[in-house]
Write a protein that binds this DNA or RNA. Structure first.
Lengths: 320, 320
DNA sequence: ATGAAAGCGCTAACAA
DNA sequence: TTGTTAGCGCTTTCAT
């Protein structure tokens, strides 16, 4: 049967026939078999999204991406790697079998060989939030360094000299960049960077804070490199009854829903995950249609860099 | 070629041949085409997950589900409906084409016809968080009513008489159930329920709170039906400088990461999304393997109900 | 233990 | 405008 023509909106089919077909479809509840269509060469209507996890930031990304995908009539296959390179590798392999039409990825440190293979299969890839090692692909990032510098400089302008940077999971690109930004700001002001790296648990954070509060020579301000570390920091400060910003001022990278409602509303460097994700998705679909129409992929990979902004609340010491 | 045999672990292949094949596969980077395999009848190695959104609660669900899926060597196709029945319908239709092996769904109000069609295609379905209308399927829920009752009774035990229930999006099953629980608790104590329904924006919440603080006859306690309403409520109370629990006591349904670190730590009724999701996923894979082995589906749909617990912090007025 | 043939549901190209 | 043919890459069955 040339039901196919109706399904694919082929104009050369008589109105009456089309109507009959449509009725029949509705009647028997027919649905085309995607597997067969894509076996026949039509790239499937699914894109892959690989993220470290779906907490907060990446959930926002997902929503922005799915919105674009739905507009293009695509579905989204999500993979959370838990930041484990081995998992990422395995999942990328599965995605390769899946013959997805394109891939959005927040790389969490696998070596890029698998990515390269996907790309060699002709699957367009766009990296977001972090650059992808081992391949050349479009990349959408935010100004991590500049943002961190911005936040730390704000603390410096408040007159702070001993400003600690608390890190978390410094294996990640974004954290490393932000730490660089912190160092730049400190050096730029002739101050000594004090880095507390890899404070990954509440316990670690609490003992760190305890050390500050008992030791002499305590820091007067803290810059936290990401949402989680901000949350842990706030919990720990709260636990040890240290007042913010009176005893210690705080600025964090990444805004979050409740930052405004905390005991002391948190001053943050805000980025826009939806902008990043939306742009990455658009870029991907542009590439996908390029591929479909048989155009050669453009040689130069696009790099998009989004700005960040400082949201001043109370934790930095500003009057409000 | 009988590469197939190697890939599918068919025992009848000489060790030496197998070795050669494996080497060849590695060399040319061969990957089996899932589309072709599933065209041939093998059900695909993808399950669908349909949720209203991926905020917080459902993100936890996703992680729990993906964990189970990966164990079974499946991938997860996520669809967020934004609580729009039309979107849910369209996406379910797409999932049907996708020939997914099973479906986990948090139904957001579509009429169930599409679900029925999927089920009629032989696709196992498990509903979680809310029951699915229009079909008979395994369902995993939490004790919404009982939980709300528990929370409200706690406020009553503190001596409160005027306890408002602030709702959000009362179209949703969980909210309706919790409101029922609230009413039950109030009536059980001979108190008059005061329901503020569908307070869906910060502005609405703020004007509500303003009314309380200016009017006579103000409530002395509030029960919030879900995380978002708790957050809005806290923001609004904060905005109007109303002290918790001195001027008004608060208990909310659903725990969240920062509940403990708020100006006043929030007393909540906690449920476990991971338990719910994990159980639902296990149930689904049990059904999937039933189907694969050609066993008849069991007649009776399973209903699993998870308990909730009251996490006492300070917002209810407990000394702590 | 391995090869050959058929067919899953679809669509692109051609024939009527 | 419609029907026919072939083949996408795999697995199942049967033959070697």
């Amino acid at each position: 049967m040339s039901v196919s023509r109706v399904i694919n909106d082929n104009p050369s089919v008589k109105a009456e026939t089309r109507a009959r077909v449509i009725k029949a479809i509705a009647k028997i509840g027919y649905a085309p078999n995607d597997a067969a269509r894509m076996l026949k060469g039509r790239s499937g209507r699914t894109i892959g999204l690989v993220v470290p996890d779906l907490s907060d930031y990446f959930a926002s990304c997902f929503h922005a991406i799915q919105k674009v995908a739905i507009q293009h009539n695509y579905q989204t296959l999500v993979v959370a790697t838990g930041r484990i390179a081995a998992v990422e590798d395995r999942q990328l392999e599965s995605l390769r079998n899946h013959r997805i039409a394109g891939l959005l990825i927040v790389p969490s440190g696998s070596n890029g060989r698998r990515l390269k293979m996907l790309q060699d299969c002709g699957i367009p890839i766009v990296a977001l939030d972090r650059p992808a090692a081992g391949i050349q692909a479009d990349t959408v990032l935010v100004e991590n360094r500049e943002g961190a510098e911005l936040g730390v400089r704000h603390l410096i302008e408040h007159g702070h000299k001993k400003i600690v940077c608390v890190g978390f999971d410094s294996g990640s690109y974004t954290v490393r960049e932000r730490i660089e930004g912190y160092k730049q700001a400190m050096r730029g002001a002739g101050l000594q960077p004090i880095l507390c790296d890899n404070v990954n648990t509440l316990e670690a954070m609490q003992s760190l804070v305890l050390r500050w509060s008992t030791g002499k020579n305590r820091p007067t301000a803290v810059f936290s490199v990401k949402r989680i570390s901000s949350v842990l920091l706030i919990q720990a400060l709260h636990f040890h009854k240290i007042r913010v910003p009176e005893q210690i001022a705080v600025v964090g990278f990444d805004d979050f829903e409740l930052a405004e409602v905390l005991g002391t509303p948190l001053t943050v460097v805000r980025q826009s995950p939806t902008d990043v994700a939306h742009t990455a998705a658009e870029l991907l679909f542009k590439k996908i249609s390029s591929v479909k129409e048989g155009r050669l992929p453009e040689q130069k990979a696009a790099k998009v860099l989004f700005p960040v902004e400082l949201i001043v609340r109370r934790s930095c010491g500003c009057p409000k």
